[in-house]
């Protein structure tokens, strides 16, 4: 993987890499991806992708509100809050 490709992926992933990390990752990711190429040896013609280990369908329940006691508690765990409201940086000057 070229370092320009590493840069492209880091932008997509919203991860800043310093120069050292960029160089190291280019080398390591190339090696790991080369190993992943092994999968091309497996014949998967006509095989459907299994994104889950089971064929179970997620159960549904009635869309009824269920009481939860802790909204204030939840807000209180943020960096900034007033009563049950979050404080966020000003967006209008």
């Amino acid at each position: 993987m070229e370092s320009t490709e590493v840069l492209r992926i880091s932008r997509l992933a919203r991860i800043d890499l310093d120069q050292d990390e960029g160089a190291r990752f280019a080398d390591q990711l190339t090696k790991i991806l080369a190993y992943f190429e092994k999968l091309q040896e497996v014949d998967t013609g006509g095989v459907s992708p299994a994104s889950h280990p089971t064929d179970l369908v997620a159960p549904v329940r009635a869309d009824r509100p269920d009481g939860w006691e802790a909204p204030r508690d939840l807000v209180a765990r943020s960096d900034g809050h007033t009563d049950e409201f979050y404080r966020v940086p000003r967006v209008l000057e």
């Binding site: 999968l39 497996v42 095989v47 459907s48 992708p49």
Partner: peptide, 8 residues
């Protein structure tokens, strides 16, 4: 491809 191999 990985999901297909997973199926197998």
């Amino acid at each position: 491809k990985a999901l297909q191999v997973r199926h197998k």
